[in-house]
Design a protein around this nucleic acid. Structure first.
Lengths: 198, 198
DNA sequence: TCAGCTAGCTAACGCTCGTAAGTATGCCCT
DNA sequence: AGGGCATACTTACGAGCGTTAGCTAGCTGA
C-alpha cells in the first residue's frame, strides 16, 4: 500500500517528473541520478524504491511522448478528408503539444539516440510513422492542387521542425498561451505549403 | 616541426574532426575520449599530444562556428538596406551553412550548455547577437510594410530554427545540393513573413 | 499491540571517465 | 652519425557513475 501522506512527497511520479526536468535541461548523459536525488532531497539509492534504472526513466518518457503524438495526430485528422483541413489540425495539435509538453519534446528530440536497443529502434519507427503520415497529407494536398511546394519531403521536415522548435523558447509563464502559439505556428506551416489564411 | 608524412595521419585537425563527428552523433557527454581515440586507431592518452582537454575540443568547435555564423551574416547583409533583400541574404547564408556544416550546427545547438563558464556565457552572448540582428531585420521590414507578421520575435525564432533543422536531415551525398536546399528554405522563411517569391 | 511492508539510509561494488607521468621509438636536421 | 623533437605507448590516479545489499525506522491494518 502506498502511504497516505508520505512525509516527503517522493513517488515514481515525482521521480519521473524531476528526471524529465533535468534531462531536458542537461541531457540524459549530462544528468546524474545523484542530481535527481538531490532535487528531491533524498539520497541516490533511495530512488530505486521508485524506479528500476536510469534507462527506464528515459524509456518511459520517450514512450509516453511518442505515443501521445501519434494519438493526437489520429484524433485530429480522423474524419477529415480535405488536405488543408487535415494539415491544419495535424499541425495545430503537434505545435500545441510542443508548448504544453516542452520538456518531453526536448528529451525525445535530443536523447532518443541514448535509448538502448531494441527499444530505440521501436521508438524511431513510431516517430517515422508520424513523419510519414504528415508527409502524406502534404503529398495528397499537392496532388489535389491545394498546396504549392517543390518537395513534400522538404516541406514536411520544415513544418515538423518548426513545431519542435516551439519547445526551445516557449515559456509557460510568458504572455502568450499554448493555443495562441499553436495557431501562429500553424499559420507559418500553411504559408510554407503556399496556403494563405488571411 | 610537424612531421612531413606521419605514419598514421593523426593531428590536431583530425582529432578535432573526429570529435566533431562523434559529438554530433552522441553528444558531448555521450562521447568518451576513448571513442575518439578508437576511431583514430590510437590509445586514449595519445590524444593529449594534439589537444589539451576534452572541454577544449568543444570550445574550439563552438567558438569557430558561432563566429562563422556572425561573419557570414555581416558579409551577407552589409551594403544592403532593403528589408526583403537583407532577410533573403541573411537567411540564405544561414541556411546554407547548416547544410555545409551539419555537425557543427548540431553540436552548437545541443552542447553549448555543456561549456564551462565563463566561456558558455560568452558564446551565448554571440549567439544572441545573431538572433537580435535577424529579428531587427524583420522588425524593420514590418515597420516598412514589407513583411506581414504578428510577432517579429515569433517569426524570427521560427525562421532560425527552420534553418537549424536542415542540419538534422541533410545528407551530403543526397540528391540535393546545399545551394538548392538553402534557396528552398529561404523561400519558406520569406513565406513566413508574408513575402511570396513566385 | 504487533507483524509486515514501505521507503528511507549507509556502505560498498565494479566500471568508466578524463587526465598525468614517465618511457620508448623513429624521423629530421645538422 | 647522432641529438632533439614529435608522437606514440604503458601505467596509474582519483573521481564519479549506476547499481546492489543490507540495515533501520515508522506507518498501516489486523
Amino acid at each position: 500500500m502506498t502511504r497516505a501522506t508520505p512525509r516527503n512527497a517522493v513517488s515514481s511520479r515525482t521521480v519521473l517528473d524531476t528526471a524529465l526536468t533535468l534531462f531536458a535541461e542537461r541531457g540524459y548523459h549530462g544528468t546524474a541520478l545523484s542530481q535527481i536525488a538531490e532535487a528531491l532531497e533524498v539520497r541516490t539509492p533511495s530512488l530505486y524504491n521508485h524506479m528500476t534504472s536510469k534507462q527506464e526513466l528515459l524509456r518511459t518518457i520517450v514512450d509516453a511522448t511518442v505515443r501521445g503524438v501519434l494519438a493526437d495526430f489520429r484524433q485530429a485528422t480522423e474524419g477529415r478528408t480535405e488536405p488543408v483541413d487535415r494539415l491544419f489540425h495535424a499541425v495545430l495539435v503537434y505545435a500545441r503539444r510542443h508548448a504544453t509538453h516542452r520538456r518531453e519534446a526536448i528529451v525525445v528530440n535530443r536523447d532518443t539516440s541514448s535509448l538502448e536497443e531494441p527499444f530505440r529502434s521501436q521508438m524511431q519507427e513510431l516517430r517515422r510513422e508520424h513523419e510519414h503520415a504528415l508527409r502524406q497529407i502534404i503529398s495528397d494536398g499537392v496532388t489535389a492542387g491545394r498546396f504549392t511546394v517543390d518537395s513534400p519531403a522538404l516541406a514536411s521536415f520544415a513544418i515538423r521542425e518548426l513545431c519542435v522548435s516551439i519547445a526551445r523558447w516557449y515559456q509557460d509563464d510568458g504572455p502568450i498561451g499554448p493555443d495562441q502559439v499553436a495557431r501562429e505556428y500553424t499559420e507559418f506551416a500553411l504559408s510554407i505549403v503556399g496556403v494563405g489564411i488571411r
